[in-house]
Design a protein around this nucleic acid. Sequence first.
DNA 1: GTCTATAGCGAGATAGAC
DNA 2: GTCTATCTCGCTATAGAC
Lengths: 195, 195
Amino acid sequence: MARKKNSSGEITGPRVRQVALQLFARHGFAAVSMRQIAQQVGVQAGALYLYTPDKQSLLFDLMQAHMQELLDALATLPPCPDPLAALEQFTRFHIRFHSARSDAVFVSYMELRNLEPANFARIEAMRRSYEAHLEGLLAKGVESGQVTLPDTKLAAFALIAMLTGVNTWYREGGRLSLARVEDIYWDMVRKAVGA
Amino acid sequence: MARKKNSSGEITGPRVRQVALQLFARHGFAAVSMRQIAQQVGVQAGALYLYTPDKQSLLFDLMQAHMQELLDALATLPPCPDPLAALEQFTRFHIRFHSARSDAVFVSYMELRNLEPANFARIEAMRRSYEAHLEGLLAKGVESGQVTLPDTKLAAFALIAMLTGVNTWYREGGRLSLARVEDIYWDMVRKAVGA
DNA sequence: GTCTATAGCGAGATAGAC
DNA sequence: GTCTATCTCGCTATAGAC
């Protein structure tokens, strides 16, 4: 066994982050106290500072980890030479990835205003990189003539907003399976880009 | 003149609401103190309680006023017998109305979780009523055969998310006029619904 | 690594003078 | 209608025992 005798530190750190994410999503960063987090983790408030230098860093780390995971997952999608197939792949990927992480998505969008300027800039750069990827796909589709769009930049914004909106209403075990939701949204995306 | 000698009370009330809305949008409800609001209004903290019983009521009043204004404006749109013309009218109305009130839109969405349950229920009912209006338009389009959609409920969610998303990037005096933005979004909406 | 205890501060809200 | 002063509470963060 590689575990040390006092191994709870290896488990408490991730647990602090998990609890913080859930509470931030539910009540908002500013409305959640370090005491609340500690209570839900099952430690005293002072012990939290072994895992984060302060509350702001805790928020930033959660948001950065989420955005990095998103970019990494995007980068490991199988290559897709056909622009329309790539757009379908992106659509289904976006819905699946985001619906599986509703707390992180919510926090990463809603709490931007609670980041210090330097931290804000770093998260925003990651978000722009993701948007630019979609815009690139749309531009390729326009080039190949498979897609017709008045403005690829606005289309990228519009599609991401539309797809992320799934998180506001989708609940597992509801009327529709996620696969069916993907189908329906892909149908609307495909038509919206004139394919 | 109808103004009384001590007329500042007639102007301070609206000003408190205006300042609170701006600060809530910028920093979040929980992060803004009554002292901050008072300072920006130019009164002492205690004086705020002449205009609102407490901070929660201030938030709720702002959100309710916004939603009521939205529903009222929707109800006074000129009647539109053709389903497709009605959908275009809705699209342009939504973009215009929401882009002119970005603070209220932002607060009314982001701060839902800071409402007491009873207040939350009232705001949610108003939002659902707005969504139902759009879904009704889409259903009429399907009936008349001018629109093709796999699911009108999801389409309503998708279109509202897409249109409201304009607020995340649109700034007056930017690359595109609002009229041009309306055109571009209407093009995508029209195609997305299979018209 | 976690605890107790506490410093230092700022919050929401109220009382009463003017 | 607005002010000053204050009550009471909870916050972030730290110190030091174990």
